[in-house]
Nucleic acid binder design. Sequence first.
DNA 1: GCAAAAGTGTTTCCTCTACACCCATGG
DNA 2: CCATGGGTGTAGAGGAAACACTTTTGC
Lengths: 236, 236
Amino acid sequence: MLKYSGQTRVLVAVDCIIFGFDGESYKLLLIQRGFAPEKKKWSLMGGFVQPEESVDEAANRILKELTGLENVYMEQLHTFGALARDPVERTIAVAYFALIDIQKYEKQLSKEYHAEWFPFKDMPDLIFDHGQMVEMAKNRLRYKASLHPILFELLPEKFTLPQLQALYEGLYDTTFDKRNFNRKLLSTGLFLKQQDKDKDSSKKGAFFYKLDQSKYLTNFEAFLKFIPNPEKFLIT
Amino acid sequence: MLKYSGQTRVLVAVDCIIFGFDGESYKLLLIQRGFAPEKKKWSLMGGFVQPEESVDEAANRILKELTGLENVYMEQLHTFGALARDPVERTIAVAYFALIDIQKYEKQLSKEYHAEWFPFKDMPDLIFDHGQMVEMAKNRLRYKASLHPILFELLPEKFTLPQLQALYEGLYDTTFDKRNFNRKLLSTGLFLKQQDKDKDSSKKGAFFYKLDQSKYLTNFEAFLKFIPNPEKFLIT
DNA sequence: GCAAAAGTGTTTCCTCTACACCCATGG
DNA sequence: CCATGGGTGTAGAGGAAACACTTTTGC
């Protein structure tokens, strides 16, 4: 096969910002690098794009390596192409962010990679420009979640309204009026009330809900206003 | 300098989706490729990322080569990494979209590249995955413009309210009530009414407005609702 | 004087917000 | 029986949408 001549080829890496929510706070899954440079420093899970896979496939492969999960919500975030972002050799990084149910990932794999979940408030310094990637991913998630039903990817199949509220309040680091919040969420018609209750977190117990999968899939890109006064919270 | 060993390096290209608005309709600046493969076919303006420039710098260089313009609104759109997107050799493309004042570009340069402006309705088939890039860029622009003051980048310094309305109506391929539209736009406080009128497009003449640059810059990322019922028009 | 486009106000409706009490249960 | 968290309704304010006529002026 002919090639383009006289052009320089560069390394292309994929880095994954992996979000989880434990009912209390948002967390990111980070790994401790096992190799130089910056060995032992904390980093996003990443890897180089291989010759026989697309960039999207590389992202899914890398996510699966660390979490064991497939068919997870993942979206391309941004491509980072500064000259010296990797001191070893010029590398262009395509960043993706993923939302996973924190219960589902395989702890075993995490151990192999020396991975840990870090809450937003308590994040270590990251190598290279990974801190910048994380900031951008947080902003993007806040932005998108204010308009689209996306955060449910972080929850297990069954969840309660108080859990849902904690999910939104955690992301925007604020509190919402529960009457208004419940009304708004339920008015989307995306939720199916279940018969059973979650009795773990209160004496009365809170009813479980599930997503109405058919409506969820067709309304996934719907344009809804999930939080009041989004301009107070959003960047970009 | 040490290198990462055993990894494959690939070509990285930048492609620019260049939007313009001539008062009537939206257009894209396309070039006729002067080299194989797909010589003579229409294409986005693009080029390879060079060893001594960042990806963003490459995008600005490429935009300038074709239009002569610098300091133009440009935003990274998406990175396209399918395996066979370029039949010659594996190439990963970072797409950017730019909004320019169609009056300002240098026609001379366009000629050298055999460039032409094509209205949305009348676009030729494009090489590779450039058609897909264009679709994504149009969706992104519609999305972003519904919430943020961004379309003014397409207009000259002085513009009239009817021009502004045509700008929005053209993007969403619809019509708006001019009373509600003017009220909404003016209520942003972004516009300064000028003394003089544009007498070209009507007998009565329409007052010129300018952007209030200070407010424009600070509100650029503001979260405003520019069009009614955005859910009717938007994808992602 | 008339055609063509610019400009301007009001009413209605609906959505958003603020706000407080009762309910169910486990201990 | 009481402490804890879950669940619900309403009234008021503000924003969005629908709607039609007057103004200007070149021809």
